[in-house]
């Protein structure tokens, strides 16, 4: 049986691959036969993730705080020096702070935008240059339901995630004839550490009320989209954002 979803022999860099969504993607990519390089800002977390993923296949970890562009540049350089090339880039890095819009400070802005937006853009372009040189590659960014709907108390996060959709579409357009596809995944509510920290009981209840499936997603329900977009199954798909949300965005109310 021909497996359109195989990632056999692909080299993948997953930034933010040490926890949450990123670590789950790393697991799935390893199981699909890819060589996986994960990057994260905390050495201890990185070591733990690499140790945990090791039994699944060829996994490598590099410490880098990508909110610092020099470190991001170094990460891409070291990755290419050690592994020769990259076929896949997944940008899973993300942070949030929650406040009423009028309470946000310039420090909040930098904290969120530097990771969620600036580092993603420059990761795309740094790795993108390499992929364009080879004439092949696939990039996946992480958007959010807040890319499409207004959410209280998360103005800066929502702005960053809306910009991810725009970035994905722009880069997809620029690079479409040059073999590099750029897509995004917009997860609904998944109880990662980031989401769990950001949502109190009332907010969780409201989220479930608005999700037709009436449940949160399980992380392994998100990996299918990451495999699909990375694989030959999606080779005519670019600039698309796959919403994995239990029907949230299909619901009008």
């Amino acid at each position: 049986m021909k497996n359109r979803f195989s990632l056999e022999g692909q080299y993948a860099l997953i930034i933010g691959g040490t926890s949450g969504i990123g670590r789950e993607f790393a697991k799935a990519y390893l199981e699909e036969g890819a060589r996986v390089i994960i990057a994260g800002s905390k050495q201890e977390k990185l070591d733990r993730a690499v140790a945990e993923l090791k039994p699944l296949g060829r996994v490598f970890g590099y410490r880098a705080d990508v909110s610092d562009l020099d470190q991001l540049h170094g990460l891409v350089g070291v990755t290419l020096a050690h592994h020769g090339h990259l076929d896949l880039l997944v940008n899973c890095q993300g942070v949030t702070r929650m406040k009423p819009a009028e309470a946000f400070t310039p420090d909040d802005w930098s904290h969120i935008i530097d990771v969620n937006l600036r580092s993603v853009f420059f990761a795309c372009t740094e790795v993108g240059r390499h992929m364009l040189g080879r004439g092949r590659g696939s990039i996946i960014n992480i958007a959010s339901l807040s890319s499409y709907r207004g959410w209280p108390n998360s103005a800066i996060y929502s702005i960053s995630k809306t910009a991810i959709v725009s970035m994905t579409e722009t880069l997809a357009t620029e690079w479409a004839t040059r073999g590099v596809r750029v897509n995004a995944i917009a997860p609904g509510f998944f109880m990662t550490a980031l989401a769990a920290g950001a949502m109190n009981a009332t907010r969780r209840e409201r989220a479930l009320d608005r999700t037709p499936m009436r449940r949160f997603g399980e992380l392994d329900e998100l990996v299918g989209a990451a495999i699909y977009l990375a694989s030959p199954a999606a080779r005519f798909v670019t600039g698309e954002t796959i919403r994995v949300d239990g029907g949230y965005l299909a619901a009008g109310l």
Binding site: R4, F5, A172, A234, V237, V244, G246, A250
Partner: peptide, 29 residues
């Protein structure tokens, strides 16, 4: 591949109500 992705519960069990564009970037979300 997109039909298989959407039909597979293992790959897209939490996806419903979505339209996936397969268009070489001609029209994006």
């Amino acid at each position: 591949g997109t039909f298989l992705y959407l039909a597979s519960d293992a790959l897209s069990g939490y996806v419903t109500g979505q339209n996936i564009e397969v268009n070489g970037g001609q029209y994006m979300p």
